[in-house]
Amino acid sequence: MNKLAKDPINVVVAGVGGQGNVMVTLVLGNTLVHDGYFVTIGETYGASQRGGSVMSHLKISAEKQYSPLIPEGQADIVLGMEPVETLRVLKSYGNQNVVTVLNPRPIHPVDFTGSGAGYPDMESLLAQVAGMSAKTYVVEATGEAQKLGNPMLANMILIGALIQTGLVTISREAIEKTIRDMFPKAVKENIAALSKGRELAAGQ
């Protein structure tokens, strides 16, 4: 376990019910705890499978157990599984130093679908996100996951991209051990997705 440059590191994972938000925090959390860190995870409830906004707070510390909620404006990293949800989280938890890793694949809210407004224009949505982040990584996670044969692998691609940023100290060995423990029937696919995520973020 290394001392962290900033302690705690506050990560918000933003997405929509059914995307696998909880799974993402579990993969990161299990890996970090086995590496000796203190991890606290707070989740949104009720919406977890039902198309609502879902957000998880993940705090990583080398020193102590923190509370499960991040205060306003105190995110260090936003891991955005969906563009509108990423912007929503930046509004509440972003600051001038926040780094955003974003999957640009939209999930259309039924309200946007039915109303005249429609889903926001993607270009200006991404510009808003970039304007509110010190650095933004755009990772086509869903598209790449579909190429790998399962859209749910988008989550592991995003985790790969997050690790590539170097902002959370997770070793390849540690995360691969977590994958073997958590997804024993799909180790190869998940490790391939992880590498894909690293590759996509490396050029940015």
């Binding site: 609502g52 509108v84 809210p109 039924v110 949505l125």
Partner: peptide, 14 residues
């Protein structure tokens, strides 16, 4: 941030 960009996402059946 324009409000219509972060419109509430109502819960719905799967």
């Amino acid at each position: 941030v324009p409000q219509q960009y972060v419109m509430d996402r109502l819960l719905t059946f799967c």
